[in-house]
């Protein structure tokens, strides 16, 4: 329950901080930190335009996409306190429930009969296929390291004792951050602020969405960032008491948003056909973590 509240709170400012960082880095003042939330509220108040090509799939897709992210959020714990859903192997459920959201956002985009949206859909399908092994190998190594198979147990048992485990945690944080970037189609893979449809991934998939549906999609995106931020925080939190952990949580989320903003400000987007390679690199980093976990648990002889 606690994690749910905290993640929702973090989601309200995460994307705002990214945008603010980018504005400041490029010498502008930029909108307020809560501007994205205001945008969404405005969208919720608007009517909608639907393409005549679309069917019920298009109208259903944003809702299911949002619901999948929302339910995934219920799985994520906060330090010692469990998420609302917690069981052995809950991270499998986490990945697969996000999968059904992706499935719907892809077919929702394809429903418009627009070539641009097809482009985005095809890329999204491919990238998420590549990103998933990285997540599973990473969670597998954490499970190996701790001997548990649920988010909450893994994170509360994750003791950062030796220097190797610190290195592992940092690498894991990197992988999670990159997965968050892929999931949200952010910078090294996709430029959300580009104006060329040919080079978009996520933005181009939602060209035809408007009003309430678009608001849901945006909110889901904000939540996704905060979810991954919470997971990264959990990597380091261990058994810290709540009165310290909660401020640290928000500090961490803000810091991550800042990092994302900096990456987006000072990095160019990859060429489209290099994206797949980059995502596969993530799996290899996860494999490194796995070998590290083997080292720590003394399985290497």
């Amino acid at each position: 329950m606690l994690s749910l509240l905290l993640i929702i709170l973090a989601a309200t400012f995460f994307t705002g901080i990214i945008i603010r960082t980018k504005s400041v880095a490029s010498g502008r003042k930029g909108p307020g930190v809560f501007q994205p939330v205001k945008d969404v509220i405005r969208l919720f108040k608007k009517g909608a335009v639907y393409s005549e090509t679309t069917s019920f799939v298009f109208r259903l897709a944003p809702t299911i996409y949002f619901a999948s992210v929302f339910v995934a959020m219920l799985v994520v714990p906060f330090g010692q306190s469990k998420g609302i859903i917690s069981f052995n192997g809950d991270f499998i459920f986490f990945a697969y429930i996000l999968g059904i959201g992706k499935f719907f956002s892809i077919i929702g985009a394809m429903d418009t009969g627009n070539s641009f949206e097809g482009m985005g859909a095809s890329r999204e399908a491919l990238y998420s296929m590549f990103a998933e092994p990285a997540f599973f190998i990473l969670m597998g190594s954490l499970a190996l390291l701790t001997g548990f198979t649920s988010f909450q147990e893994i994170f509360s048992a994750l003791h950062l004792g030796s220097s190797i485990s610190y290195a592992l945690a940092v690498m894991a944080a990197f992988v999670f951050l990159m997965i968050a970037m892929i999931e949200n189609s952010r910078m090294p893979l996709d430029d959300p602020k580009t104006h060329l449809e040919l080079t978009m991934v996520h933005e181009v998939m939602i060209l035809d969405n408007s009003g309430f549906d678009l608001g849901l999609i945006f909110t889901a995106g904000y939540l996704k960032f905060a979810i991954y931020g919470a997971i990264i925080f959990n990597l380091f939190s261990g058994t810290i008491a709540y009165q310290y952990a909660i401020p640290m949580f928000f500090g961490m989320q803000a810091f991550l948003a800042f990092v994302v903003g900096m990456i987006e400000s000072f990095m160019a987007r990859f060429r489209m056909n290099h994206n797949a390679q980059f995502i596969v690199v993530l799996s290899s980093v996860s494999l490194l973590i796995f070998f590290g976990a083997l080292l720590v648990s003394g399985k290497f002889i």
Binding site: F44, K46, G47, A48, V49, Y50, S51, E52, T53, T54, L60, T63, I64, F66, A67, S68, F70, V71, L74, I84, I85, I97, T112, G113, N114, F116, E197, L207, D208, G211, F212, D213, L216
Partner: peptide
Amino acid sequence: YFILTILILLGIRKLVLRKRAILISSTWGC
């Protein structure tokens, strides 16, 4: 939970969109 979330959201969506103007137009074509 997932199904329940979807149903609740669909309900909300229906309520919200009831008063809003819904337009049918062609697909965005750049």
